[in-house]
Simulated scan of single mutants.
Amino acid sequence: MENVKPYNDFGDFLRKVFPYKVQKISINAGFTCPNRDGSKGWGGCTYCNNQTFSPEYCHTEKSVTEQLEEGIRFFSRKYPEMKYLAYFQAYTNTYDELSSLKAKYEEALSYPGVVGLIVGTRPDCMPDDLLDYFTDLSKEKFVMIEYGLESTLDKTLLRINRGHTYGESETAIRRTAERGIYTGAHLILGLPGESREEIMHHADRLSALPVTTLKLHQLQLIRNTRMAKEYAEHPEEFHLYTADEYIDLVIDFIEKLNPSIVVERFVSQSPKELLIAPDWGLKNFEFTAKVNKRIAERNARQGRLFIPFSQEPVPHRM
């Protein structure tokens, strides 16, 4: 009998898409964000210190090619046959003139062994002409657009200074998926002011959308952010999960999640020198092993409590 995993795993998804091993290589292409330059706001999201995003080889003064070269050198020693996905990760990677964006994407795609793009961005930064470009590109290359939603609650998005609404998130996901492009979403679990019930409701709302992949991250308080200052002044407004509490939270979450959505990750690991709390002392793979162990103990599985969204019947008029 086939061994079926208890959740829709990202590694399995990649194995279905590609006939060879692939690895993401993070790129910082020097973009900013409309929430930092005054277009949408100033100072960025309250939790954001962008140093937490980027591996050591990924620095703004290096070109896209140089960053790919260093990242690929790291992996190719061990896996000479491996292919690569250029992951435009830091800040808003669709926030520039179309010609400048295309030049950076195409520089990445022209590098030997790079077979596709993953582009991290905001739901309010996907103009039609850029979506047209990605649509055409996706017919020849792997393309995934990863939207930072962070929450499905407008009150939270306002509190953390995101500068967009959840309605804009839904629209961006639908517009992208309708073009046949792989569409990712990113959520932070445990943002201030959100109850456990509200966190679980994120799963219901996302499950009704055409999302390909989902990244879940625990809330982390990072040095030199506005949220760190808020926490210092009002710690009672935050619930910082222990590792065991968060493990049960993410398992409860994926049990409500549409089983077709690929779960890319449960947790994030910020550099120790930037992290205030929670410091669990676990690497990502160690945390995932603990999640898998707890899933087995609970006999849990993704989608066990998923209720498909159904339209309410329209009453007949006499």
Rank of each mutant, 00 (worst) to 15 (best):
V4H: 09
L14T: 14
K16M: 09
V17W: 05
Y20E: 12
K21Y: 04
Q23T: 12
K24Q: 14
I27E: 08
A29D: 08
A29L: 08
G30D: 06
T32S: 15
R36Y: 08
D37A: 15
Y47P: 10
C48E: 12
C48M: 11
N50A: 13
N50M: 08
S54Y: 07
P55W: 14
C58V: 12
H59T: 15
K62Y: 15
K62F: 13
E66W: 00
E69V: 13
E70N: 11
I72F: 03
F75A: 09
R77M: 03
R77H: 15
P80A: 09
M82Y: 00
L85K: 08
Y87T: 10
F88M: 12
A90S: 14
A90Q: 10
Y91Q: 12
T92K: 07
Y95V: 00
D96Y: 00
E97T: 11
K102Y: 02
Y105S: 04
Y111P: 11
G113F: 10
G116D: 10
I118E: 14
V119E: 12
T121P: 03
R122K: 08
C125L: 05
D132K: 04
D136H: 11
L137F: 04
S138E: 07
S138T: 06
K139H: 12
K141A: 04
F142G: 05
V143M: 06
V143F: 02
M144E: 15
Y147F: 15
S151G: 05
S151Y: 00
T152S: 02
L153I: 04
D154E: 07
L157K: 06
L158F: 06
I160P: 02
N161G: 02
T165F: 01
Y166S: 08
E170I: 12
T171M: 07
T171R: 13
A172F: 04
A172K: 04
R175S: 05
A177Y: 13
R179K: 15
I181T: 10
G184P: 12
H186M: 04
L187D: 00
I188A: 00
G190A: 01
G193N: 08
E194K: 02
R196V: 09
E197M: 05
E198G: 03
H202Q: 07
H202C: 13
A203C: 11
D204S: 06
A208Q: 06
P210L: 13
K215Q: 08
K215G: 11
L216K: 01
H217T: 00
L219C: 09
L221G: 03
N224F: 13
A228K: 09
A228V: 01
E230C: 00
E230Y: 02
E233Y: 04
E233T: 06
E237G: 03
Y241H: 10
T242C: 00
E245M: 11
L257R: 00
V262G: 05
V263Q: 09
E264R: 10
V267P: 02
S270E: 15
D279K: 15
W280N: 15
G281A: 01
N284M: 07
E286Y: 10
V291D: 04
R294S: 01
R294T: 08
I295C: 07
E297A: 12
R298N: 05
N299T: 06
G303T: 00
L305I: 00
I307V: 13
I307P: 01
I307M: 03
P308G: 09
S310C: 07
E312C: 10
P315I: 05
P315Q: 07
P315L: 14
H316C: 10
M318A: 14
